[in-house]
Design a protein around this nucleic acid. Structure first.
Lengths: 269, 269
DNA sequence: TAAATAGTGTCTATGAGACATTATGTA
DNA sequence: TACATAATGTCTCATAGACACTATTTA
């Protein structure tokens, strides 16, 4: 490949780089032509889906809510719950917000009002051929379900027929049983994100019951980070939150196998 | 609103929550009907665009690369560079990857090979009516251009005609001159993300020349965080990076208005 | 020489982590 | 009584920040 005399080249950390002073003609034509036609709706559009990583922690075990696919491809394989974003058919009626689509799927699958759960956009997965049928771009969200709400989610799954529509599966088991599409990657991305955020945000409180002990909160951190924390040191970290009024004492004590523990409540900001 | 006798209700931090044991019939029908038809391509799809926040720091000033819109809506208003994701017309040919679309737009607008720049997905903006013409879901990316590459970007803008196609605007000026669509929000989100990541990642090295002084690196941090750092303390932080072999000494010295400074180089992992 | 920035050193406060000790329940 | 976990205390080390001081250049 030879650069024309008017071209620029410079050496960088990535090696020699050529900069053409004229943008390549074919690119320009391509782009403007593409845009012109695109507005005219001649070019194909992708489907856009939302996929949800719905997580909880029960009995010191991270669990994710999964469905089993009833259609090809990946028929019979577990997958993240998801749905297509509903798009209107005119400029006046453009359909539902992206966040609303995620909240809708979350409510559908859990039976809980989405405003009672923590829901946040995770990442958008858009490789070509990630769905063999057609081009699907998936905006992934993750949601956290407090363990005291889990029974309500399970109750919802048992109503329609004998086989549950969605089940909680241990995150540790999802390694040996791959998910449909690129959902294993999405799941891993979600856990990684939470693991990164738990140290400097309040999301840990979305994974304990409304009232909780320091030990319960600690085990949430331990499950997410995959490491053990010194109980005494963790307690000190916690007491700073108490001083900062992020949490407050709740009445009563939690009875355990040993000495009863004080219970606390998160002061939602 | 009255709950049926079989419904469950429970009190949470968010108030009283009702859980219907049976999923609402109308929802279920809606969903399955929707999905069935969707696969048949009867339902409308959104357009998916990538919008890029391309940033650099020149003369202790954070700048963003903006274009001026030549079409309605927002004709004549500044906007982030962007483009539609190219989607194929069959299941075999599904078009370009989402990341590839972002890299393509980045190359088109800067004239630089995208692999020589830092590019990362930011967030997906999908509110209905964010584009008045039609439903557009925008996957935003941000890119960082080292200041020693800026002249090449500017050279590219001058070729086609007299008026540049894209210009660097000071971030501080974008507050008084709102951008098209929700691009002001996207821009703010990008700067916030960078501000959060600069403390625990290596992205600061994407905003200094290939070789740089400690003072130059410090002023990048100061511009991004909007605060002043103590030169001595910052230097110590930096020396740990030197010990950890994240950076290394480069030959020569940078001549300044005062005492010349040692120059360093980032050891790309 | 004055101004400016590079570069070094010192002191303090804070938080993380290792580890020991006491307190209070259950089996 | 043995065991388990709650709750407290102590010590060390790493880091952030305030601040003083020296070094080396240009104007």
């Amino acid at each position: 490949m030879e650069a024309s005399r008017k071209d620029l080249a410079f050496r960088t950390r990535e090696g020699l780089i050529h900069v053409s002073r004229k943008p390549p003609e074919i690119d320009e034509e391509d782009e403007s032509e593409f845009l012109a036609h695109y507005q005219g709706e001649e070019y194909p559009r992708p489907s856009v889906a939302v996929d949800l990583v719905i997580l909880t922690i029960v009995d010191v075990d991270l669990k994710v809510l999964l469905v089993r696919r009833s259609e090809h491809p990946f028929k019979g394989v577990r997958a993240l719950p998801g749905g297509f974003v509903r798009v209107g058919d005119s400029s006046k009626n453009q359909g539902e917000d992206l966040d609303a689509a995620a909240a809708r799927v979350l409510s559908e699958k859990t039976g809980l009002p989405s405003r009672s759960l923590y829901l946040e956009q995770l990442y958008t997965f858009g490789k070509a051929n990630r769905d063999p049928r057609m081009r699907v771009i998936s905006v992934a969200y993750y949601a956290l379900v407090r363990p005291d709400l889990v029974p309500f989610v399970e109750a919802r799954q048992m109503v329609e027929n004998g086989s549950p529509r969605a089940v909680w599966l241990s995150f540790s088991q999802t390694g040996s049983e791959p998910l449909a599409f690129d959902h294993s990657e999405i799941l891993k991305t979600a856990v990684k994100r939470i693991s990164g955020k738990i140290d400097y945000t309040d999301i840990a409180f979305e994974l304990v019951p409304a009232t909780f002990t320091i030990g319960e909160l600690r085990s949430v951190h331990e499950v997410i980070k995959g490491t053990a924390y010194d109980p005494g040191n963790f307690r000190r970290r916690f007491q700073r939150m108490l001083a900062d009024r992020i949490i407050e004492k709740a009445p009563g004590k939690r009875l355990t196998v040993s000495r009863p523990a004080a219970v606390f409540r998160f002061r939602r900001p």
